[in-house]
Simulated scan of single mutants.
Amino acid sequence: MTDPHQPQDPVTRHPRPDFPEQDQRHPGWTGPMDPPPDHGEDSYRGTGLLRDRVAVVTGGDSGIGRAVCLAYAREGADIVFTHLPEEENEARETTRLVEEAGRKALALTADNRDEEQCRALVRRVTDEFGRIDILVNNAAYQMAQPDGIEAITTEQFDRVMKTNLYGMFWLTKLALPHIPRGGSVINTTSVQAYKPSPPLLDYAMTKGAIVTFTQGLAQMVAERGIRVNAVAPGPVWTPLIPATLPDTAEFGKQSPLGRPAQPAEMAPAYVFLAAPGSSYITGEIVNATGGTPLP
């Protein structure tokens, strides 16, 4: 195994396209993916940056969410994460990784499109742990429509808006009274907020709104000692890709690094934003785009 603490060529560190064509039904699963995603299982080393914190991660069963759960656990945090009912097997693997790191894992089935389920989630976490130190709003939905805006149904539009925006708004609003001074809210936005791909128009709209929400909320709660930031990934190799995009063979090839990111490459940004060392950073967007220039 390559020592992750030694310098590595970012161009060749992880698999590069062309990938085998692959297609899954939503929400997608990690197991069939080729190449398999890297969540940091063999590379992430914690140093106690988040010791005894309580972190809530939505969409933590796979992809970026799983990588964040793993990294937070290895940094010493207890983890609560959400997943959809059909993602039960994925959730078990995230639970295993967290518990293997010696931390508590609480996997909760929750659909953040429903306000009452968001309320029940916060109630369960606070009953169990008494507080929420870190809230990571990561759950998202997308579905590419190459045929244009006419192909985006009201049903799809509602699902994208409610998953990506309503759920984030409700959970943050409900969690804030339980976040102590020194706590953090970290949102997942996207390069799509700045450079929208036409087939992902509705998804890109929500990611732009998340940037605005992050910057506005950060000012609103600064005096309460709570920081609010976001991570804007570029193309990342997660189950959402074969489940929502029509062409996976060249996914990520347009990046200046010539490949998509692996989930493990996103997790350090979330750790940095949650850790005490970033105490003067709030209202910021950490762009992790593989070199794609952004405004």
Rank of each mutant, 00 (worst) to 15 (best):
G277W: 12
C118D: 08
T30G: 04
R45W: 07
V80M: 02
M161N: 09
G31H: 01
S184A: 08
G234L: 11
A274S: 13
R66G: 10
I226L: 05
V221C: 07
Y72F: 11
D42P: 00
P177D: 00
R96I: 05
S255V: 13
P20N: 06
I285F: 00
R124L: 02
Y203K: 07
R124H: 03
A209N: 10
R25V: 12
R119S: 03
A249L: 04
Q254Y: 15
L217G: 06
S184F: 01
D52T: 13
C118A: 04
A120P: 00
L84K: 02
A55Y: 10
L97Y: 08
A243S: 13
T238P: 09
R159K: 15
V57W: 06
R131D: 01
R16S: 12
G183E: 06
Q142V: 01
A77N: 07
A204I: 08
P196G: 01
L108Y: 03
A107N: 06
D9E: 12
R13M: 14
A101H: 05
T109D: 03
V80L: 01
L176G: 07
P256R: 12
G167Q: 05
A274F: 00
E115K: 01
W170M: 06
F251Y: 15
A71S: 11
R45F: 03
T2A: 11
L174F: 10
I149P: 01
V271N: 08
R51T: 11
D127G: 01
A193Q: 08
Q215P: 04
F129D: 09
T109E: 02
I132E: 05
A261Y: 14
E223Y: 12
G216P: 01
L84N: 04
P32N: 09
L245E: 15
I152L: 05
N164G: 02
C118R: 02
G258R: 11
G40I: 04
D34T: 04
F251P: 12
R96Y: 06
I226W: 03
S278Y: 04
L135H: 10
K207T: 03
S62L: 13
Q156E: 15
D3P: 05
D23G: 00
N187Q: 10
D34P: 01
I179Q: 06
Q24Y: 03
V98T: 10
L108G: 01
A288I: 14
F251C: 12
V11P: 04
A107H: 03
I281H: 09
F129M: 12
N137I: 03
H83Q: 02
A71T: 03
V211I: 08
A73S: 00
V11M: 07
I64Y: 04
L50A: 12
Q254I: 14
P180M: 00
G65L: 08
K104G: 00
P7D: 10
A275C: 10
Y166Q: 02
Q156K: 12
V11C: 09
N89F: 00
F81C: 04
L201E: 08
A264V: 12
G130P: 07
P239R: 15
T248M: 13
I132K: 03
G130W: 06
M220G: 06
Q142R: 00
V236T: 15
C69K: 03
A105P: 02
A218Q: 05
A73D: 05
N89E: 13
G234P: 07
G31R: 05
A222H: 04
Y280G: 07
G102T: 00
A222T: 08
G182S: 11
V236Y: 10
H178R: 04
V191W: 11
